[in-house]
């Protein structure tokens, strides 16, 4: 017998590297979940995030959430800002879990110092392990829309299509969190993401 998800908790693991916007994305998601009437928890380690290290943020919501961290093998969605980081956290997904990953590659200088190599086969490995992963070239898409920072909103848009949270609430939270002059652009980016699948 395996552990039952009796409370139907939704687990979203948001990952990337320092400075990419992982924390902001998870803030928005947990806020949307709370305003949709759920108990929501969010946990991340952000001590080193400013300096390009690995960043992860766990978001969980249901009627009643105890642990703020997701167990390995129990994430429903892995939302990733960087391709190799998707590989790093793939084992957190349930067998039925979904991957949404930006195709952006950020090669750490440690690689040039001979401390490892960038996993060029990442897409193939993900396809072997996961059904229907969503690969999205989010950075060029964001740049085309007018601002590289829109990656965040595009990725959230894709995730929103898989999560049962009201679209009005998503939009309300996004509008509240971005500077007024970027409101329109972010709503367009969100919509673009939402309609990708």
């Amino acid at each position: 017998m395996t552990r039952e998800n009796t409370k139907k908790t939704v687990n979203v693991l948001v990952v990337g590297t320092g400075g990419q916007g992982v924390i902001t994305a998870s803030e928005i998601l947990s806020d949307v979940a709370m305003r949709s009437g759920f108990d929501a928890k969010k946990s991340e380690i952000h001590g080193m995030s400013q300096r390009g290290g690995v960043v992860t943020s766990h978001v969980r919501y249901s009627e009643n959430v105890a642990s703020p961290i997701i167990m390995e093998g129990e994430a429903d969605i892995l939302l990733s800002f960087e391709l190799s980081e998707t590989l790093r956290w793939l084992h957190f997904l349930r067998p039925s879990g979904r991957v949404i990953t930006s195709l952006q590659k950020i090669i750490p200088p440690a690689v040039y110092a001979g401390m490892g190599s960038y996993p060029e086969e990442a897409q193939t490995v993900i396809k072997q392990r996961i059904t229907d992963p969503i690969f999205v070239d989010a950075l060029p898409m964001a740049e085309e829309l007018g601002n590289p920072r829109l990656v965040n909103t595009i990725l959230l848009g894709i995730a929103s299509a898989m999560l049962d949270l009201p679209v009005d609430t998503w939009e309300a939270v996004i509008v509240e969190r971005v500077p007024p002059k970027f409101t329109e652009l972010n709503l367009v980016a969100f919509d673009r993401g939402r309609n990708i699948t």
């Binding site: 590297t17 320092g18 080193m48 400013q50 300096r51 390009g52 290290g53 690995v54 190799s84 980081e85 590989l87 790093r88 956290w89 793939l90 084992h91 750490p108 200088p109 440690a110 690689v111 401390m115 490892g116 190599s117 960038y118 996993p119 086969e121 990442a122 490995v125």
Partner: peptide, 9 residues
């Protein structure tokens, strides 16, 4: 490939 080091810098 999921174990590539990415230390803070």
């Amino acid at each position: 490939g999921g174990d590539m080091p990415r230390p803070p810098l």
